[in-house]
Amino acid sequence: MTKFLLSLHVLAAILAVGPVTVAASMFPAAVRRVPVAVTAGGGDGAGVWDVGTVRLLHRICRVYAGLGIAVPVLGFATAASMGVLGDAWLVASITLTAVAAGLLAAFVLPRQEELLEQLTDRQPVERALTARLAMFTGVFNLLWATVTVLMIVRPGSTTGA
Score class of each variant (00 low, 15 high):
V147R: 06
F27E: 07
V17M: 14
A106L: 15
M1Y: 11
A30M: 02
V139K: 11
P35Y: 03
F76S: 02
L116M: 09
V31G: 07
W49V: 15
A65D: 10
P28Q: 10
T148H: 03
H9K: 01
V125H: 05
D50K: 08
W144S: 12
P28M: 10
L15T: 11
T21E: 04
A131D: 15
S81F: 00
F107G: 04
G68V: 06
V38D: 12
G47T: 14
L67K: 06
Q118I: 01
K3T: 11
A79K: 04
W144K: 12
E114M: 13
L57T: 00
V17H: 03
F76D: 02
A100F: 03
A29Y: 07
I152W: 13
D44T: 12
A80M: 14
T159H: 08
F27T: 09
R127K: 12
A128M: 08
G45D: 03
A12C: 09
R154W: 09
A98C: 00
F76L: 12
G83N: 03
R154P: 01
G75F: 00
C61D: 15
S93G: 15
A100G: 08
A80Y: 15
G86W: 02
Y64C: 11
F4G: 01
V31S: 01
G102A: 04
A98Q: 02
V108K: 05
V38Y: 10
E117W: 05
D87Y: 05
F76N: 00
L85A: 06
M135A: 15
G52Y: 04
R32Y: 07
L5A: 06
W49R: 10
T158S: 14
I69P: 00
L150E: 04
R55T: 10
V22K: 01
T21G: 15
I152F: 14
V108A: 08
S25I: 00
S157I: 06
V34I: 13
A16L: 12
V149D: 09
T148D: 06
V149K: 09
F136L: 08
N141C: 13
L133F: 02
N141G: 10
W49K: 10
L103E: 04
D87I: 00
T120W: 01
A80L: 15
A131Y: 08
P155S: 09
L56S: 14
P35Q: 07
T130W: 09
F4Y: 11
T97D: 00
A23M: 05
L109N: 03
L6D: 04
V54R: 07
V71P: 04
V54P: 09
Q123N: 11
V22R: 02
A134F: 07
L90W: 14
G83S: 06
V51C: 06
I94Q: 03
A105V: 05
G45Q: 03
L115T: 03
G18I: 05
R154Q: 13
Y64I: 00
L90T: 02
E114G: 07
L85K: 00
L115I: 03
W49C: 06
L133V: 09
W49P: 05
G83T: 05
L67G: 13
I94E: 01
I69R: 01
R154A: 08
P19C: 12
V125C: 03
L96T: 01
R127S: 14
L96E: 02
G43W: 11
A131H: 14
A65P: 05
I60L: 15
L116V: 08
T159L: 13
R154E: 11
V147S: 09
V147K: 06
L8I: 05
P124E: 12
L90E: 02
V17R: 01
K3G: 03
A30W: 06
L57N: 07
